Simulated assay, not measured.
Amino acid sequence: MIEARHPDGPGGQGPVTSDVLDIRLHRYDEPIVQELIAELQAEYVVRYGDEDRSPVGPDDFTPPRGFFLVAWRGQDAVASVAMRAVDDQPGTVEVKRLYVRPAHRRQGLARMMLRGAEERARGAGYRRVVLETGTEQPESLKLYAGEGYDEIPGYGYYAGLAHSVCFAKPL
């Protein structure tokens, strides 16, 4: 568990409060994971007109091949992130399903989740992380650039896809 500090009140104004953020490992097929993925996919539909069609499966996120993390505040699941091995790039892991529920945004949770996933991947021996996001997700583009990711050409499924922006970072 880590202690998260975030501004509360309208528009993020007001006192800084502290609460405990419990980040737990979950199986891909668990109901809460599927609920968070469904919410994220609904956002993709709004932003892009369709769900993310990149191929994923439960085995992708089963250790040691990968993992799925969910952040909890008390009984509320507030954010998620997953990573999976990139088969044709030894030592490389891919970020998937980084999501923060709307009521919990603008509190630094995406950054905390990303850093926590990177730390776990580093501990598992991965040396590089890659990811794909899209042109209609400016908050994601800003997050990844701010966390030291460099833009790279599209890879794998994303090579040549309109609206895709790919990034990489050494661990």
Rank of each mutant, 00 (worst) to 15 (best):
R5M: 11
Y144G: 10
T17N: 02
L98Y: 01
Y44K: 00
P63Q: 12
R105A: 01
Q34H: 03
S80A: 14
R5V: 12
V56E: 15
V130N: 07
G123V: 05
T62W: 13
L109A: 06
A124M: 15
L131G: 14
P102W: 01
A79S: 03
F61G: 08
L40E: 12
Q137Y: 06
A85G: 10
G12E: 08
V78L: 00
S18Y: 00
M83H: 11
Y28T: 00
F68C: 14
G57P: 03
R128N: 11
E43A: 07
D50G: 05
A79G: 00
I37C: 11
R106V: 00
E30W: 13
E136Q: 15
T62H: 15
L40Q: 13
A82H: 05
R122N: 02
A71R: 00
E132Q: 12
G123L: 11
L69T: 02
Q34L: 11
R127E: 03
L21W: 06
Q107T: 01
Q75T: 08
G146H: 12
D52K: 05
R120E: 14
E35K: 07
L40R: 06
D150K: 14
G57K: 04
L36P: 04
E139I: 10
K96F: 04
A145K: 13
D52M: 13
R97W: 04
G134P: 13
R53F: 05
R24F: 05
A85E: 13
A77F: 05
R47S: 08
M112R: 15
E132R: 07
G12P: 07
